[in-house]
Design a protein around this nucleic acid. Structure first.
Ligand SMILES: [Mn+2]
Ligand SMILES: [Mn+2]
Ligand SMILES: [Zn+2]
Ligand SMILES: [Zn+2]
Lengths: 140, 140
DNA sequence: GTATTTATTGCGAATGCTTTGCATAAGCAA
DNA sequence: TTGCTTATGCAAAGCATTCGCAATAAATAC
């Protein structure tokens, strides 16, 4: 576990949150994390969840995902790079990793002259179990 | 102009909002649109902006972008498909379009068995005018 | 082990963005 | 023009996230 990497105080709340994120296997939002944490430490507060999520983001231990929603989802960052595909109907999240990503990044770096630090690719669609909307054409 | 495509009543507020989005050339958020609209119709309300943005999204006339922020940005959808690169320092938005995107989409469709309807690619980095953070390695 | 220091917590209140309820206004079809 | 109904403005509510502050508890020094 990466718990030793934190350069600040290792509080019980911090340890707990990291454990929960690790065990959940990704894509939980702040409130889901809070509910799980309360199950093990009923006195924990939602502010503590948010404060520690921000810390874990800065330490690069946790990634914040911005799906097409008004709140965010979190997952451990130590896993291999990957991107996300979310079902518009049931919400299932599929992870993928494409060898084209580094090429695209390099291309964009060259044409834009930006130094790129991060990519987030979010696709939406209908999973094999969900009824497709026949009037919705692929916009790609 | 696509104003005739709307299947509902063509109110002055709707026409105004669409004009502002078209003329602005993209990437404005709801409040920026509201401010510009107020300049031309001082009685317009922010609710009207949001209600019409939602309508224009449904009609596929406007795209909502989810940069790494807690609010959204809007742009006309009738332009060619493209994606975004935002400077972490000054906020400049660079648009790009990669021929690799359709390939990647096809790949993901095959391995996932999803029917993909939308892709959003958001990159972050440092633009040519902004000081780079030397400790920040490309995570790609 | 105890004291000291100071980061962190819990709580409540505040903030920022977006949606909603409702009475009034204004499109639109006849 | 009338009448039906959608859309608007306004104020209030709803969510997600952050902040202020007094109390708590890690870490460190004795
Ligand atoms: Mn993931
Ligand atoms: Mn754009
Ligand atoms: Zn599904
Ligand atoms: Zn810049």
């Amino acid at each position: 576990m990466a718990t030793e990497l934190i350069g600040q105080r290792m509080t019980s709340q911090r340890k707990l949150l990291l454990e929960i994120i690790r065990d959940a296997g990704g894509h939980l939002d702040a409130d889901e994390l809070f509910q799980k944490a309360k199950g093990r430490d009923p006195r924990i507060s939602l502010s503590t969840i948010y404060r520690n999520l921000n810390l874990l983001k800065e330490l690069d231990l946790v990634a914040e995902r911005h799906f097409v929603e008004d709140h965010h989802h979190y997952e451990l960052k130590d896993t291999a790079e990957h991107h996300h595909l979310v079902c518009r109907s049931c919400g299932e999240v599929f992870e993928f990793n494409s060898p084209l990503t580094p090429k695209m990044t390099k291309d964009v770096e060259e044409t834009s002259q930006f130094q790129i630090t991060d990519i987030e690719i979010n696709m939406q669609g209908y999973c094999p179990n969900c009824p497709r909307d026949m009037h919705q054409e692929s916009s790609i």
